[in-house]
């Protein structure tokens, strides 16, 4: 992934009403710990995603609190009970105030 904050959410191709689906998400971010130095010996300041909010329609369904211990370009997967057609939205916030959003629509496959 390239630009900081670029994000993708992957849902299953077909979703049935009531099914518990797996959601995969990735955001591009350096997740610098603050413990490393650059090639010139200058410390690289801590720069990481600290908060992830997951909403389904207008309902907050999960919130993750992260540290710089999560690997670069953070991936996370979790489940969701798909009981209605609504957008699944994620907001990643970093420790420098950067806010990154992505969403994916949950729609049910027609029989």
């Amino acid at each position: 992934m390239s630009g900081i904050g670029e994000a993708r959410i992957r849902l299953p191709d077909r979703v049935s009403r009531g099914e518990v689906i797996v959601v995969n998400a990735i955001v591009s971010h350096p997740m610098d710990t603050g413990f490393f130095r650059d090639a010139d010996g200058n410390p690289i300041p801590a720069y990481f995603i600290k908060d992830v909010v997951v909403t389904y329609g207008d309902q907050e369904v999960a919130r993750f609190i992260w540290t710089s211990g999560i690997s670069r370009d953070p991936v996370v997967s979790f489940t969701l009970r798909a009981d209605r057609e609504a957008p699944l939205a994620m907001t990643w916030t970093d420790n420098k105030g950067g806010v990154f959003r992505q969403s994916a629509d949950i729609r049910f496959a027609s029989a």
């Binding site: 518990v20 797996v22 710990t33 389904y56 309902q59 369904v61 999960a62 710089s68 211990g69 999560i70 690997s71 953070p74 991936v75 996370v76 997967s77 979790f78 489940t79 969701l80 009970r81």
Partner: peptide
Amino acid sequence: AIGSVSISTRIK
């Protein structure tokens, strides 16, 4: 609303 506990990620 999550339906089950199944979380994966990558850590340092």
